[in-house]
Write a protein that binds this DNA or RNA. Structure first.
Length: 818
RNA sequence: GCCGAGGUGGUGUAAUUGGUAGACACGCAAGCUUGAGGUGCUUGUGGGCAUUUGCCUGUAGGGGUUCGAGUCCCCUCCUCGGCACCA
């Protein structure tokens, strides 16, 4: 009887389908479990990264189902976005046709892997039925002031011919195509994620089950920074410069002000200057340089000829323009304290500006001497007027009060996080549902007119402008308010918008609202969310943001959608993530054909723990295949009647197999549930089977066929989440009526996991010298007596004095002698 | 530069609480099976020495704490990930 995996796998996939095994139907009797893996972009074929991600999720959801939970395990498609458009241009197809055929193909691949999804809940973000709700949500956000339009300098990818979010610019290059990103001024739609900056940070506390690395990355990204805004009047003028600093305590050490070249007051400041032209040329030059390279350039600056007044000391200080001051952080102006800031120090050295120490470090002398380096630590103030002698923290507090009293500034917290720019000048995305009316201005599309559909016939490569902009049938519309002629917004949404709420839509995928609120109350939050660590910031922050917005709309009580996160390490080939554009995609199909889906699942999980990165290599697949093959053969052999039964001494074998079995149940259960270490769960199953097959002959001869059978049954249950077709096939061969998905997960007997005897190590002076076998929980006196009987130990201790002994029950006895 | 994770056989990795390092596999070697190959099975497999039972050594390198360290502490090196003039 051969292990015909192809036949078996097709058979069981059909059975599951007919039995509706994976349909999630809510009931009050069972605890619910929402298992979600990040939905894929339908790029064409699944690759090993998908196989890994979805195998992990499938094991967990099948395990939870057997544990008695009502499991919801949905799947869908992140189906809008640029690759479809690029592929369409290349192959002269429509993006929709390309996308839908990819979805059809990939869905077959997923089904062939035996993943158990509730396909009734399948969704694709490119369907008007889905993106209608993107538009609906957008309009609701617009009404609440959470979406707004502003002109801003944006990151422009000349190759993708669209805007990129800050997050999508990596090292000054486009995250997708690696082209150099340039700056461009455009009117853009933004979502006010900054309104939630504080909460996104503080509710990290609710995410204790998240990897701390991800929380840290998000914290850095949000970049909260507490400090003060101080107004510096410009001497001989009405102008004022607002400066942000986190080190208000160092303000007496400020010796110049530095402005970004893009600071709005630069023009006013240099108007009268005879060297205006040179300064303007300089500003131009540093802007060009910063566009060319994102690397910090050599510090450069130019004096504006004007002075500012320190509101604390009344001292005048020069105002410079400097290339290291960012316009889009703080106010674009800084007070420079060279003694206590490395960047200011470097700049001051170069242009010979004064360096004045005002902080004495905690440790080490009170001497104020020439500095060779900036000292950035907090300390005690000196040369700071009435604040001298205070600690940095005290000074910040008192100075803050002074600012407020004199109305020359205030304590302030700022964030690195910016509002989320969602406008994209491309076709294959959700049309932003607003109209521009000459009389009414910006008017959201009427809800009854949603969805604003993407036109099917479209020129994807207009000579200039975006495809929708050039499609006059689309762009021309009537104003939803006054019915006069109006122009439609022709930008589409960033696809991260689509994926920031899809997990709600699975609860009610055909609801006539973004999602069915009752169903959502039942199923959400997501009990475990599994996906690539590469989404640690973007997707996960956006999803947290949108969930909080939904809560504030009163649509849900939930503030955090993913209390549990499992970040899967990337599957790489040649050191980089598999992607179609890199051409290093490993297709699982040939492996499935050769070994079957069960082997492929087992292998990808066995190769490493889920959170670790994995450089792809198929050496070792054989081992997993052999494992299944051996079980298969064992089964068929063992099910035959035993020719002769001789009474032997079965007691030991029976006892040991019993213990091993209970230990294996415990290990596999805990590895899946608590640690997600599926690799060691599989290793434990292999170990158990090795043990069982080694003892089978003995057990059979002693008439313990019943025990073998029991062991095999339990093993199949434990194997079921990993290799469900295989396990079910053998289960059926045992004459079982129910399928394994309907069986309860086995429990272990806590009294059956300890052996009767244990090995206790005997150490002499820190080195293991011998071991003795004693009864479990044997006390110290007994172990000492036994240890002293050992020849080796006697020899080692001969003529020596025992200084002390340390006894660890069931582990070791450590003897210290001299 | 800053922050984080990590470095264990020829390879993937295991050791969950400071207590037998290398489980489970891959690969390799020898043997059995076979007409041959593949499959399957058995045995061996960190390094060194003795080769029989044994001894020494070993978790990137160096130091430390401890009866005992892969695990804890300090320093150095390397790899990966994130951030990067964030005032």
């Amino acid at each position: 009887m051969n292990y015909n995996f192809a036949e078996i796998e097709a058979k069981w996939q059909e059975i599951w389908q007919n039995k509706l095994t994976f349909n999630a139907v809510f009931n009050d009797q069972q605890k619910k479990f929402y298992c979600l893996e990040m939905f894929p972009y339908p790029s064409g074929k699944i690759h090993m990264g998908h196989v890994r991600n979805y195998s992990i999720g499938d094991v967990i959801s099948r395990f939870k189902r057997m544990k008695g939970h009502q499991v919801i395990h949905p799947m869908g498609w992140d189906a809008l976005g640029l690759p479809a458009e690029n592929a369409a241009i290349k192959h002269k197809l429509h993006p929709e046709d390309w996308t839908l055929s990819n979805i059809a193909f990939m869905k077959k691949q997923l089904q062939r892997m035996g993943f158990g999804y509730d396909w009734r809940r399948e969704l694709a973000t490119c369907s008007p039925e889905y993106y209608k709700w993107n538009q609906y949500i957008f309009i609701k956000m617009l009404e609440k002031g959470l979406a707004y339009k502003k002109k801003s300098e944006v990151n422009w990818c000349p190759s993708c011919r669209t805007v990129l979010a800050n997050e999508q610019v990596v090292d000054g290059k486009c995250w997708r195509c690696d082209s150099a990103v340039s700056a461009k001024d455009l009117e853009q739609w933004f979502l006010k994620i900054t309104a939630y900056a504080e909460e996104l940070l503080s509710t990290h506390a609710e995410l204790s089950q998240w990897p701390s690395k991800v929380i840290l990355m998000q914290q850095n990204w949000i970049g909260k920074s507490q400090g003060a805004e101080v107004i510096f009047p410009v001497a001989d003028s009405e102008l004022e410069l607002k400066v942000f600093t986190t080190r208000l305590d160092t303000i007496f050490g400020a010796t110049f002000i530095a402005l970004s070249g893009k600071h709005p007051l630069v023009g006013d400041l240099i108007r009268e200057n005879r060297e205006r032209k040179e300064i303007e040329a300089f500003i131009n030059q540093i802007e060009q340089e910063s566009k060319l390279s994102r690397e910090p350039a050599e510090k450069k600056g130019m004096y504006t000829g004007r002075q500012a007044v320190n509101p604390f000391s009344g001292e005048k200080m020069p105002i410079w323009i400097a290339n290291f001051v960012l316009m889009d952080y703080g106010s674009g102006a800084i007070m420079s304290v060279p003694a206590h800031d490395e960047r200011d120090f470097e700049f001051a050295r170069k242009y010979d500006l004064p360096i004045r120490q005002v902080i004495l470090p905690e440790a080490g002398g009170n001497e104020v001497g020439p500095l060779t380096d900036a000292t950035c630590e907090k300390g005690t103030l000196t040369a700071s007027g009435e604040y001298s002698g205070l600690s940095s923290d005290q000074a910040c507090e008192h100075m803050g009060e002074f600012l407020a009293r004199e109305k020359i500034g205030q304590l302030k917290t700022i964030f690195r996080l910016r509002d989320w720019g969602i406008s994209r000048q491309r076709y294959w995305g959700t049309p932003i549902p607003v109209c521009y009316c000459p009389d009414c201005g910006i008017v959201p599309e009427a809800l009854k007119n949603l969805p604003v559909r993407l036109p099917k016939n479209i020129d994807l490569t207009p000579a200039d402008g975006s495809p929708l902009e050039k499609d006059s049938a689309f762009a021309k519309t009537i104003c939803p308010r006054c019915s006069g002629p109006a122009r439609r917004e022709t930008d589409t949404m960033d696809t991260f918008f689509d994926s920031s709420w899809y997990f709600f839509r699975y609860a009610g995928p055909s609801a006539s609202l973004p999602f069915d609120r009752d169903e959502a109350r039942q199923w959400l939050p997501v009990d475990i969310y599994i996906g690539g660590v590469e989404h640690a910031i973007l997707h996960l922050i956006y999803s947290r943001f949108i969930s909080k917005v939904f809560r504030d709309f009163g649509w849900t009580d939930l503030s955090e959608p993913f209390p549990n996160l499992l970040t899967q390490g990337m599957v790489t080939l040649g050191g980089s993530a598999m992607s179609k554009s890199r051409g290093n995609v490993v297709d699982p199909d040939p492996l499935i054909e050769k070994y079957g889906a069960d082997t492929v699942r087992l292998f990808i999980l066995f190769a490493a723990p889920p959170d670790k990165g994995l450089e792809w290599s198929d050496s070792g697949v054989e081992g997993c295949y052999r494992f299944l093959q051996r079980i298969w053969n064992f089964f068929h052999k063992t099910l035959q009647p035993v020719p002769e039964v001789k009474p032997g001494d079965p007691v030991v074998a029976v006892k040991e197999i019993g213990i091993k079995l209970n230990r294996t149940i415990k290990k596999v259960s805990e590895d899946i549930e608590k640690r997600f270490h599926l690799n060691t769960a599989i290793a434990a199953l292999m170990e158990f089977f090795n043990d069982l097959s080694a003892r089978t002959e003995q057990l059979k001869r002693s008439g313990n066929d019943g025990l073998i059978l029991e062991a095999m049954e339990t093993m199949l249950k434990l194997l079921a989440p990993f290799t469900p077709h295989f396990a079910n096939e053998l289960w059926e061969k045992l004459g079982k009526q129910q399928i394994l998905e309907e069986m309860p997960w086995p429990d272990f007997d806590p009294d059956q996991i300890f052996e009767e005897t244990v090995n206790v190590m005997i150490q002499v002076n820190g080195k293991i010298k011998d071991k003795i076998s004693v009864a479990i929980d044997c006390d110290e006196e007994e172990v000492k007596r036994e240890a002293m009987k050992c020849e080796k130990i006697k020899q080692l201790l001969a003529g020596r004095q025992i200084v002390k002994m340390i006894f660890i029950k069931n582990k070791m006895l450590s003897i210290v002698s001299k």
